[in-house]
């Protein structure tokens, strides 16, 4: 079944890229979920869409090809992430306001650039729902670079990111530079989103960052374990989703998310079962 993925270049690049994002999206997702920022991923993916539309528009109207939609998306995503962080500073008491502001701004800009670029086409459809055939050799190497960068930064700043996520006030008192670490973190998030969109699509990228984490939260003991489990679930969903999407001719965004939801349901079910059986066991012991 996998044979096609190794035979055709474009599929191989998609497959390898899938493995990369199956790693980095849930990895960052763990921090996003525990900091209750799940919606930030949605806001940023819509800003990324605006950047993609901007890239398409430049290409179509001015034949400027060096800002490809992929790079356009990445640039917009990073700028959007910095704006979110700034807005969170402006609305200290209502930090979540930053999210709808940036999200609607992203959608608004997308609409404008899409219509300026003469509307919808297949390319855009691929960006919305992901595609198994959209990853070029160039994209793959860019995403590889981003992934290595993200792994190194998370490795180096793991303890600060973890400490800040758990208890920001305490972390700040102890002398950790909360603002700078937040900024770094949100820029990483923007990069992961831009990297993932080729495969899962704008509308579903936040699912890949949060669903595997939601599932592993049911089962894990401790944060590190949750991280590893999230990555395992993420890989399972991406690989399973790419293969089934290819053979069923469905955009992989859809299959990846549905597999993630299946994993989530299974882990909730497993947790329920193990809790009830534990209760029953203790009830026996007490009887």
């Amino acid at each position: 079944m996998l044979a096609d993925f190794f035979e055709y270049d474009f599929l191989r690049h998609t497959f390898l890229t899938g493995i990369l994002i199956g790693l980095i999206a849930p990895l960052l997702g763990t921090f996003i979920v525990v900091r209750r920022l799940s919606l930030i991923a949605d806001a940023l993916s819509h800003v990324t869409l605006a950047g993609i539309a901007f890239g398409l528009f430049l290409d179509k109207k001015f034949a400027i090809a060096w800002i490809t939609p992929f790079y356009g998306g990445m640039i917009f995503s990073v700028i959007g992430s910095i704006l979110i962080e700034k807005l969170r500073g402006v609305y200290k008491a209502f930090q979540e306001l930053a999210i709808p502001i940036i999200l609607s701004g992203g959608v608004g800009l997308s609409v404008i650039f899409i219509s300026l670029a003469d509307g919808f086409n297949t390319d855009l459809f691929n960006y919305l729902f992901g595609s198994v055939s959209a990853v070029s050799r160039n994209d793959f190497f860019t995403i590889l670079g981003i992934s290595i960068f993200i792994l190194i930064v998370i490795g180096l700043f793991y303890k600060e990111l973890f400490t800040l996520s758990f208890d920001e006030e305490h972390a700040t008192i102890s002398g950790i530079h909360a603002k700078r670490i937040h900024l770094l973190f949100i820029i990483l998030t923007a990069l992961v989103i831009a990297a993932s969109i080729r495969i899962v699509g704008v509308l579903l990228v936040s699912a890949l960052m949060t669903l595997p984490v939601a599932a592993s939260m049911q089962l894990a003991k401790g944060f590190k374990q949750m991280m590893f489990l999230s990555v395992a679930f993420g890989e399972l969903a991406v690989i399973g989703g790419l293969i089934s999407g290819y053979y069923l001719s469905i955009p992989p965004g859809g299959t990846i998310v549905m597999i993630s939801i299946l994993i989530l349901l299974l882990s909730i079910g497993y947790k329920r079962l193990s809790v009830t059986s534990k209760k029953r066991r203790t009830a026996h012991e007490h009887a």
Binding site: V34, L156, E160, F166, H170, A171, K221, F223, Q225
Partner: peptide, 25 residues
């Protein structure tokens, strides 16, 4: 009143006390 659902072990929570002291990188 911290988030009780936060998945961190006792060891991990206590280790956070050392984060700043150990220092960046």
């Amino acid at each position: 009143s911290f988030n009780r659902g936060f998945p961190a072990t006792v060891y991990e929570v206590v280790s956070m006390g050392l984060t700043a002291k150990v220092g960046y990188l």
